[in-house]
Design a protein around this nucleic acid. Sequence first.
DNA 1: ACCTGAACACCGTTCAAGT
DNA 2: ACCTGAACACCGTTCAAGT
Lengths: 190, 190
Amino acid sequence: MTIPRTPGQRAGLSRQAVLTAARQLVADEGVDALTMRSLADRLGVHPNALYSHVAGKAELEEAVLDGLLADVRVPAGGGDWRTAVHALMRSTYDVLLAHPDVVPLYLGRGSRGENAQRLGAVMLELLGRGGVTGPSAVEAQSVLIVFTIGFAAFAARPGFEHQQPDARRARLDGNFDRGLAWLIDGIAGG
Amino acid sequence: MTIPRTPGQRAGLSRQAVLTAARQLVADEGVDALTMRSLADRLGVHPNALYSHVAGKAELEEAVLDGLLADVRVPAGGGDWRTAVHALMRSTYDVLLAHPDVVPLYLGRGSRGENAQRLGAVMLELLGRGGVTGPSAVEAQSVLIVFTIGFAAFAARPGFEHQQPDARRARLDGNFDRGLAWLIDGIAGG
DNA sequence: ACCTGAACACCGTTCAAGT
DNA sequence: ACCTGAACACCGTTCAAGT
């Protein structure tokens, strides 16, 4: 596409440009449309050119996923730690549901990206303020993350997002809040 | 493979034979190895021959997934409903972890198969014995299923199952039991 | 180092034809 | 109805070559 190039001519690509285009592609056409070839097409480049900026499709997807987490709102310092934990997970839930077709991709993988690590540190700090530290904190963290991603995946599951009147969605969100509260109760008490 | 056939000759396939072979393929080589072409190869048939017994790959995967749930142990009638609910979800968790590479496949989809429906009915019956009925029961059910599948996915996530000393696995299972108990407490109390 | 060109080894699915 | 044969429109990735 665009301007034809001969071998040796550069297209002015960068890792950032590739990732940005990938996110737009996912936003525009869904996660299934994210292929190395379609992404290359969008960038006006041959598919194999992407490998100069990205290790492969797996790493690309990981970067796209972690990029989403940049939108998660971190609660301001101070205030009740339990409220803060709840708010943090609720924001994560909202961000995930803002990108329904990406959520399934989240489940099979860990989240080793920088945003995931940053949010993980915030969570541990909050738990620490509640006296939950060490192995217990890591365990609590796992439970909360699994619940949140799992619930988002449930709420965003195929054939569900299309027909969701506000009432249904609100009830689902309410369920999430209740389940989350139960877990935090358990973490605080146990 | 096997005996070459000319057009018009039948291979003696059936939907059951296709599904059985698919399950064996997944068990032997993992869920990534489940392709229409490799499955056809295993059955000594051309890829398109499968479409006489299966609507497509999506339906095939759904059937394979639901088939796994046949192994879930349904707790005997009588006894505490909370204990029974816990046992039901714990058995589901165990069955899922017995097939780690299938779990990620579970998350993106609903579970509309017959085994899923049967287990769902059992769950609702148990919740009903606890006085949890109607919309609350459906909500409780969602929370429990999401938590269980989500946790199994977490425990079985790639690069995790390989290096799991018994102690680590036992601690993870303990986390599942605790989180599950918290949720059931919440359901019973709310 | 970054790209083109060409190829390899795959996919799921469809269509036409045979019996 | 159930299969072969052949094809279509895709994939991710690698290797060699140009500048």
